[in-house]
Amino acid sequence: MTVKIVKVIALNTFKEAVRDRILYLLLFFAAVSILFARVLALLTVGDRAKIIKDVGLASISLFGALMAILIGTGLVYKEIEKRTIFTLISKPIRRPEFLLGKFFGLVLTLFVMLLAMSLIFLALVFVHTWTIEWTMLVAILFIFLELVLITAVAVLFSCFSTPILSSLFALSFYLIGHFSWSLETFIKKARPGATKILLQVLYAILPDLENFNLKTEVVHGLPLSAAHLLYSAAYGIVYAAFILALAVLIFRRRDFV
């Protein structure tokens, strides 16, 4: 495994992604959605800055996830389908290097896109509060971590199924990930027994993407707990590594025909 080859493939993947029109379409809608927060703010009574922050961060998270899913699910599949992988595999690279290159290439793309969305968002917040709110960046950093995890999931599905199916799977992962915390309430209410154990197991397996959601805290200026941040970061990295390892395992011995 060499970092250099992963880097070369990642940069080429980045090139591929930024030459894809769908990326700019999503970026455009993200910008519209962030700016739409301003309109919403005008229509509501209450703290306008809070609404702008709330809607803005939600937009960044949603469109970032859409970018990760719509581009990520095609990445590996297209290489096999279009047979570009034939020449690639004939070069001195190992399959895991290829997969990781694809993954990091998309992560780099998402980082740049997130940067662009954040600039629009921070500028909008700035004209309302006349301060640059650095805590917003913490929330966005954790959105980035969530996107890294979603990218890993998209790449995993892309290794064995078509982009449309993979997108559906990855989208389900995203949705389940944001609602799985509600299982906690069920677990608390459930009487001890098989059901409770089942729910607990399910909760342990299912992703909990709400870990990466710091919206409430940063919007309302609540204190951020270092322990929670550390736990969430570790959770995201370990989960993504696990998904990638699974992808490598699937990808390692498959025939490209």
Partner: peptide, 10 residues
């Protein structure tokens, strides 16, 4: 490869 397919965006 036969019928070469390459990255068409490059």
């Amino acid at each position: 490869p036969e019928n070469p397919y390459f990255y068409d965006y490059l």
